[in-house]
Write a protein that binds this DNA or RNA. Structure first.
Length: 592
DNA sequence: GAGCCTTTGAAGAAG
DNA sequence: CTTCTTCAAAGGCTC
């Protein structure tokens, strides 16, 4: 595999990716030191990202997995290969065949980003995306005026080549994992693009490519109100009046970065020549880099009107205008992480299988299924998530997750339910092995703590680490062979006592009880469970057994009394889903 | 109607 | 550096 000079500064590399290399190197060390060393969750998941990158080029390249090159090099190479392959095939075969067939790919223009070296991209760099939303031929417009500004700001040419863009998301009727985005390594290649090159020319043939619609991830749905306002399929690209636009405005972001998405003159002329003027959205008084995007949700008009009657004082005027601007600031949602992408895909399936509608219950199921996924399967989602982040970063260079924190969107802070005394986060409860045992007794620490990873939560008084609620159930329902599970901190947990059982599967009177085909053996009934989580959802279960709520960390005795419903069978979601007609019994008991 | 529930992961804030 | 918190999606539920 060709190795590029791994120049630093690839800020687009996600943390997990960076970690992956570090951790895998660490893993190598460990392997050499101790053959029984296990990777923790972070290691595995990080490696999944790397693996997915590797698989992009060669699914059988085990060597790459065993010895991942430095992250930046790998990514560049793979991105380049992906790009080249995509350029060859334009069928978007970034992932080999399923599970994402059938979606046309589109291109988005080169993105110049301050995060990228020299803030510019290669003129041949393209991003391919799969179309998911209905395409509408709509007049592109008023790009020229914006373009002039953008061109003045951005040194890199853009290559918008299409006038089609999806504008409506159909959450449950489309494959959620459609945005198969290849990021050209050239995105990260230092050096300014040759300005003389045509905007959209096939690097191999030299023939101008057919126009490809720019696209963005479909995971940034417009708010219902804004959808109706979208008169243009270039939605997020073309400024619209009254349409949510991503303004890198003065108050919009802490860092007024230059445009992330530039539209060059060719695109502008293309659009203006292709579409009648009346279709051209009027120039909006937005930042020239305003990028309408499904991720953008504008604040309600109500909020704006409250700011409309401003006082006459100049200072107050200024402040008010600032406030107004802030309120008008569209809400750019966070990119979805791997699990969220997975949930989007699988939710409908679970709903169909289990006839559940409560998201909380479904999410529990999905969480377990997630852990049951193989590395390869998870890798797909990590890869997608990584691309989501990259795309998001390119589209919104100045955006920060902090922007969506309290107050930034005018919505109230989501408050977690107050922790009950005695819960794991209680201030008086020692949470970390290090705090409890001290540095000189590291042998007593849980494994994550020994590895300086996040401690599985220590429950007071038991001298053992208890898996967090999210993974406790997985202890039993996920296959031991599952890398995710092997990597999970929970696997390091020592046997738990009943007192230390996490209570994630606490029950109300179970409206889902009908879904459980087999009553839980009394020996499996958790004695305490639930009790402490009055608001907890009932355990979700699927008739097909694919979805189960295994004991939330069974007491050893209870586990032993599991009359050999061998843990292996209990562990495997996948196998259960596919082969086992009987669902796992719930081992939590009703509060009744 | 706002917020909670529930999941995992990413990112930022805080100590 | 570690830990904690918030937010992404989703829809039913509670107050």
């Amino acid at each position: 595999m060709p190795q590029l000079n791994g120049g630093g500064g690839d800020d687009l590399g996600a943390n997990d990716e960076l970690i992956s290399f570090k951790d895998e190197g660490e893993q190598e060390e460990k392997i050499s030191e101790n053959s029984s060393a296990e990777r923790d969750l972070a290691d595995v998941k990080s490696s999944l990202v790397n693996e997915s990158e590797t698989n992009q080029n060669s699914s059988s390249d085990s060597e790459a997995e065993r010895r991942p090159p430095p992250r930046s090099e790998t990514f560049r190479d793979k991105s380049r290969e992906s790009l080249e392959e995509a350029a060859k095939r334009q069928d978007g075969g970034l992932f080999k065949g399923p599970p994402y067939p059938g979606y046309p790919f589109i291109m988005i223009p080169d993105l110049s980003s301050p995060y990228l070296p020299n803030g510019s991209l290669s003129p041949t760099a393209r991003t391919y995306l799969q179309m998911k939303w209905p395409l509408l031929d709509v007049q592109a417009g008023s790009l020229q005026s914006r373009q002039a500004l953008k061109d003045a700001r951005s040194p890199s040419p853009a290559h918008i080549v299409s006038n089609k863009v999806p504008v409506v998301q159909h959450p449950h009727h489309v494959h959620p994992l459609t945005p198969l985005i290849t990021y050209s390594n050239e995105h990260f290649t230092p050096g300014n693009p040759p300005p003389h090159l045509p905007a959209d020319v096939d690097p191999k043939t030299g023939i101008p490519r057919p126009p490809h619609p720019p696209d963005i991830s479909p995971y940034y749905p417009l708010s219902p109100g804004t959808v109706g306002q979208i008169p243009h399929p270039l939605g997020w690209l073309v400024p619209q009046q009254g349409q949510p636009v991503y303004p890198i405005t003065t108050g919009g972001f802490r860092h007024p970065y230059p445009t992330a998405l530039t539209v060059n003159a060719s695109m502008s002329s293309f659009l203006s020549s292709r579409f009648p003027p009346h279709m051209v959205p009027p120039h909006h008084s937005l930042h020239t880099t305003g990028i309408p995007h499904p991720a953008i949700v504008t604040p309600t008009v109500k909020q704006e009107s409250s700011q409309s009657d401003v006082g006459s004082l100049h200072s107050s005027k200024h402040q008010d205008s600032k406030k107004e601007e802030e309120k008008k600031k569209p809400h750019i949602k966070k990119p979805l992480n791997a699990f969220m992408l997975y949930m989007k895909e699988m939710r409908a399936k679970v709903v169909a299988e289990c006839t559940l509608k409560e998201s909380a219950a479904i999410n529990q199921i999905l969480g377990r299924r997630w852990h049951a996924l193989s590395r390869e399967e998870q890798a797909k989602y990590y890869e997608l998530a990584r691309k989501e982040r990259q795309l998001h970063m390119q589209l919104y260079p100045g955006w920060s997750a902090r922007d969506n924190y309290v107050g930034s969107y005018g919505k109230k802070k989501k408050r977690k339910r107050d922790k009950q005394p005695g819960e794991t986060n209680d201030a008086n409860t020692p949470k970390k092995c290090r705090a409890l045992f001290g540095l000189d007794r590291q042998s007593l620490w849980c494994k994550p703590c020994r590895r300086k990873k996040k401690c599985v939560r220590y429950i007071q008084g038991e001298g053992s680490c208890v898996s967090p609620p999210s993974s406790d159930g997985s202890l039993l329902d996920s296959p031991p062979s599952s890398p995710a599970m092997l990597a999970s901190p929970s696997r390091d947990s020592k046997p738990q006592t009943e007192q230390t059982q996490p209570l994630s599967l606490s029950l109300k009177p179970d409206p889902l009880a009908h879904l459980v085909m087999m009553p839980p053996p009394s020996s499996l009934v958790l004695t305490e469970s639930a009790a402490s989580k009055p608001g907890a959802l009932p355990p979700a279960s699927c008739p097909n057994g694919a979805l189960d709520h295994p004991p939330a960390a069974l007491p050893p005795a209870a586990a032993a009394s599991l009359a050999q419903p061998s843990t292996s069978s209990l562990h495997s979601h996948s196998s259960l889903a596919g082969t086992q007609p009987q669902p796992l019994s719930l081992v939590t008991k009703s509060l009744e």
